[in-house]
Computed example of a mutant assay.
Amino acid sequence: MLERKTRKDRTDVTFVLPADQPPGEVSVVGDFNDWRPGTHTLAPRPDGRRAVSVRFPAGQVHYFRYLAAGDYWFNEEAADGHEGANSRLNT
């Protein structure tokens, strides 16, 4: 799930996943962090889900995927679209 807060010149996006699906550590990996795992790792929230927030400039397109333990890559179903193997995010 994606939570968005649109500001004047940016969009704050929070990437949210259930507490244990998939199990283990999960990172958001994309063109905004040079596809480096571990840069944006989801952390537990008080409601039991896991999340990480990233600030993006307004009016851009970014591509990303999730990477879970065991080299398990997967996409965001609530993304703005998908291109090839990647999820698309429009800010």
Rank of each mutant, 00 (worst) to 15 (best):
F64D: 00
T11Q: 11
F32T: 06
D71V: 10
A43F: 07
P37D: 06
P37A: 06
R49S: 15
G84I: 02
Y66E: 01
H82Y: 09
D9I: 10
Y66F: 07
M1S: 11
V54N: 03
Q60S: 13
A79E: 00
F15D: 02
T41I: 14
S87I: 05
F56H: 01
R88C: 05
T39Q: 08
H82T: 13
P18H: 05
F56P: 00
V61R: 10
R36S: 07
G48V: 01
T14Y: 08
V13K: 08
T11V: 15
T6I: 11
P57H: 12
T6Q: 12
G30V: 02
D20K: 14
A85E: 14
D71Y: 10
H82K: 14
Q21Y: 12
G81L: 03
V13D: 07
S87A: 12
D9P: 04
N75V: 03
R36N: 10
N33Q: 03
G81S: 03
R55K: 07
S53Q: 13
T39I: 11
E83T: 11
A58Q: 06
Y72M: 09
V29F: 01
S53R: 13
H62K: 11
P18S: 09
G38S: 00
L17R: 06
H82C: 11
V52T: 11
G48F: 03
V13M: 11
G48D: 03
T41E: 13
A79L: 02
V54C: 05
D47E: 08
T39K: 09
R88E: 07
D9V: 10
W35K: 04
G59D: 10
V16W: 01
R45A: 14
D71I: 10
K8V: 12
